[in-house]
């Protein structure tokens, strides 16, 4: 979908688009992580004579860096206080790891290897499990608003998944801290359970039942 839409934009002509980026369109995205550079060696070789955008401030090639985590930090941030957001997420990760590690150390035999203690993969798993495929949008036809199922881009599906996770985590009592609740939600979602996965399923079900209105999207 996103590919098609981009094609459409391109064919309609460059002059009408107002791009906000400081970089001209032919600038390539930088690849900061070393292992990715090695992976994409042949593709990067083509970029020898192509200007490349400067790397963003927070991009790094350390153990602590992870793209999903960075995105999550951005979504948690309120009023630009990303330092707080970062510490909240790292606490969340710690809590996830603590519960998992404790279970692993208490488990015996084969169960031991089945428990995943890697908080990052758990987070990724949770986000994957929460990603919706479709979305409904209100379209007015004959004075009636119809909830019409529409496909969404990959990027938006990731955004929705993380947003839902956060919304679920923020819906809590005052006494409970955000990291605690977020850890809870992430662990739930990683195992395909919990409120966020249910919310996704509900949305899918609604899309399925409203499938008859699908043609309103183009007619």
């Amino acid at each position: 979908m996103s590919f098609l839409s981009r094609l459409a934009v391109k064919s309609s002509g460059f002059s009408c688009i107002r791009r906000m980026s400081v970089y001209p369109q032919h600038y390539a995205e930088p690849v900061v992580q070393k292992n990715k550079q090695i992976e994409q060696k042949s593709e990067l070789a083509k970029l020898h004579h192509v200007p490349i955008k400067a790397a963003v401030n927070k991009a790094s090639d350390t153990v602590f860096h992870d793209d999903t985590k960075e995105k999550m930090v951005n979504y948690i941030t309120k009023k630009g206080n990303s330092a707080l957001a970062r510490s909240l997420l790292s606490k969340t990760m710690e809590l996830i790891k603590r519960t998992q590690t404790e279970h692993m150390n208490l488990a015996k035999g084969d169960d031991k290897d089945k428990i995943n203690t890697n908080a990052e993969t758990l987070l990724k798993q949770a986000v994957e499990n929460c990603r919706p495929l479709l979305q409904v949008t209100a379209i007015k036809r004959g004075g009636v608003n119809y909830q019409v199922p529409v496909p969404i881009t990959t990027k938006r599906s990731y955004f929705l998944a993380m947003k839902w996770l956060l919304e679920a985590a923020r819906e809590k009592e005052r006494k409970v801290s955000l990291p605690e609740k977020l850890a809870w939600e992430i662990l739930d979602a990683a195992h395909g359970q919990g409120r966020v996965v249910k919310r996704k399923d509900d949305l899918h079900r609604q899309c399925e039942s409203n499938r008859a209105y699908a043609h309103y999207r183009w007619s």
């Binding site: 603590r98 519960t99 279970h103 203690t117 993969t121 409970v176 990291p179 662990l187």
Partner: peptide, 28 residues
């Protein structure tokens, strides 16, 4: 400190058994 950790762990007790992991397993 992280108080109230036990609540999380209690909540998650049920998942532990049915967990399938794809993560890299540390040295045995």
């Amino acid at each position: 400190r992280f108080g109230n950790l036990s609540r999380v762990s209690v909540q998650l007790q049920r998942h532990v058994q049915q967990m399938a992991t794809s993560a890299a397993v540390a040295p045995a």
